[in-house]
Design a protein around this nucleic acid. Structure first.
Lengths: 112, 112
DNA sequence: CTTTCAGATCGATGATCTTCGATACATCGA
DNA sequence: TCGATGTATCGAAGATCATCGATCTGAAAG
């Protein structure tokens, strides 16, 4: 079961309520200091991935809380998790970040 | 009194707690469907600006609520407001959006 | 089979956020 | 000066969110 994510640019006409909700969900997932640090930690980890247990200590948060944030990032398509024995290796989905950056990109200048 | 906004990239080393809070604040400001639509409405308005009173109807929200969201967008540097008689003309600060896009930009690839 | 450990889920709590009516402030027109 | 209009702020209600301890699942080790 794969997911459908938002891609509607903010600057091509007035964004519809429904599309705005989807896009806002992705941006809200990034709008939390803990989740930004998780992304940063994963990207900086050797091989670009780390298990949840490696995040608790640097974040200074409990295991359920880290798991909670990872779930939100997963549901927003910003990270993926692959089970490897007892561990789940998480890594950043850079394509997804590119998509979100595109949503905020300035309008296509047509002359002027 | 000018404001200091975040600019610390997520992918250049592990982002510090303090910087993460600042960056998250900006992204959280964008993480709301109403505020995304406000940005979209302002950008699509003739001259790229509109007063608060012109937003209430298309958003279907009360004046205090619209004012509340405009305040958050202002405090995040995403819009500016210029008083023109009784009206305050709001417009999107595209530079600020560029900054935020940069924060989410992929790391500088050094070989490989 | 039992223990151990990583991860997910549940339930509760406290904080934050969205929304609105009421109200105050500011500006213009009569 | 007075009323009308756009905006900001206040206070309250309801919803959402972050956080944790307790608990459950799943997998490896003994």
């Amino acid at each position: 079961m794969d997911m459908e994510f938002c891609c509607t640019p903010v600057f091509e006409g007035v964004i519809e309520e429904e599309d705005a909700v989807e896009t806002a969900r992705a941006l809200a997932a990034l709008g939390d200091p803990v989740r930004l640090r998780i992304i940063s930690l994963l990207a900086a980890a050797p091989g670009g991935s780390a298990c949840g247990c490696e995040l608790e200590s640097p974040l200074g948060l409990s295991q359920p809380t880290v798991s909670h944030h990872l779930r939100i990032l997963r549901e927003s398509g910003l990270v993926t998790g692959h089970r490897e024995g007892r561990w789940v290796h998480y890594q950043v989905v850079s394509q997804r970040l590119d998509e979100i950056r595109e949503v905020l990109a300035p309008p296509i200048t047509v002359g002027v």
